[in-house]
Amino acid sequence: MMAEEAAVVEEDVSPAQSPLVAVTFQRNVRRKEKYLEAEPRALGITQVGLSVYMIVCVGVFQAKGLSSLDTDIPVFISSLLVVIAGNVAVAAQNLHIPTLRACLGMQIVSCAASIVNIVCSVIKMEGYSYCWRYYFDSTHNFGEICHKIENVQSHFFAGGVLIQVTLLAISVTLAAYCCKVVNCCGPAPKMPVITVHTPPVQQ
């Protein structure tokens, strides 16, 4: 009688201690690989290439006296920051958490730099006129040539606005993926893990 009661108690306790299906929540060990889905190498190289292009163009316009130093200096500095951000984005492919945090910070800075460059490009496109000096020159008829130069500049800076909008979109994308990986906005998400226990085969 006592043996039967012990067997009943053992049968009642065993399923609770070792359920057939157990659900646990664990951190995703492959969470950092989410950053690679953003194609950071391609986007980082694009950031570097477009920013170097803008730096070279601003330097050429400044060397020829066709641009204002007041707007060239912010564009030059902001473009350098975007170049640095692009290099950090490529370096963050090693999925090292400090590097990913640095990438997040630099992409936020890059967003601000791109906005500054957009404003400067709009000012360059709409603001300054370089032809006033030729209206008072009675010995040379440079007015028509100057207006052609201004038209070229206007189209160039309009293209510059599109480039900066592209760089802004790239920076926002990389920052979003970095934010998912380093969990700056909340705790790390946990994934449900379902474990199925196979009952021992009774002989």
Rank of each mutant, 00 (worst) to 15 (best):
F76L: 06
V8D: 09
K190V: 00
Q203V: 06
G160Y: 00
S114Q: 03
Q203P: 07
N94R: 12
A22G: 03
F136I: 14
G65N: 03
S68F: 09
I77P: 02
A42P: 01
A6E: 10
C103P: 04
G44K: 02
Q26A: 08
V88I: 11
E39V: 11
I115D: 04
A102K: 13
A175R: 03
M54C: 04
Y177T: 01
L167K: 10
M125D: 13
Q47K: 06
G44A: 02
D70Q: 15
Q107R: 10
V8G: 14
P199N: 01
K190N: 03
F157G: 01
Q26F: 04
Q17I: 12
F61C: 11
A92S: 06
V196Q: 09
I84A: 13
L167N: 11
H140V: 06
A16M: 14
R133K: 07
P187A: 13
A175N: 04
L80S: 10
F61P: 01
V182K: 00
A158G: 05
T166M: 08
S154K: 10
Q26H: 05
T71K: 01
T99K: 06
K32P: 02
I145A: 12
T99S: 15
P74K: 00
P189T: 06
V58H: 04
N117H: 04
E10A: 09
S114R: 02
C131Q: 07
A38G: 00
N117E: 07
Y134P: 01
T198Y: 06
V13Y: 10
I149L: 06
I84N: 11
I45P: 02
Q26S: 11
T99V: 13
T173W: 03
K190S: 05
V152R: 10
L174W: 01
E37N: 06
T166L: 13
V48Q: 03
V21F: 08
A22K: 08
A102T: 07
C146R: 02
G44V: 03
L43A: 02
L100G: 01
N28I: 00
N151I: 05
A169M: 05
I118H: 14
A158E: 05
R31C: 08
L43E: 00
Q203A: 13
Q107P: 08
V161G: 03
A169Q: 13
G143N: 12
R41M: 07
C111S: 12
T24F: 06
G127T: 05
A169R: 07
Y128K: 11
G159D: 02
F25M: 09
L20C: 06
D137M: 05
Y128F: 12
Q164Y: 04
Q153N: 14
T71F: 03
V119S: 14
A3I: 09
I115L: 09
K64N: 14
T195R: 10
Y134K: 01
F76S: 07
H147F: 12
D12I: 08
E144P: 12
T139C: 07
Q26M: 07
C185Q: 13
V56Y: 07
E37V: 04
A102I: 04
P40T: 00
T198M: 14
L50W: 05
G127A: 05
F76D: 12
M191Y: 09
R101S: 15
M125P: 13
P98G: 00
G44T: 02
I77V: 13
V82C: 10
K64D: 15
V161W: 04
G186W: 00
D12L: 11
P192Y: 01
A113E: 02
A176Y: 05
S14Y: 14
I145C: 08
H140M: 09
F76V: 09
Q17V: 15
V52G: 04
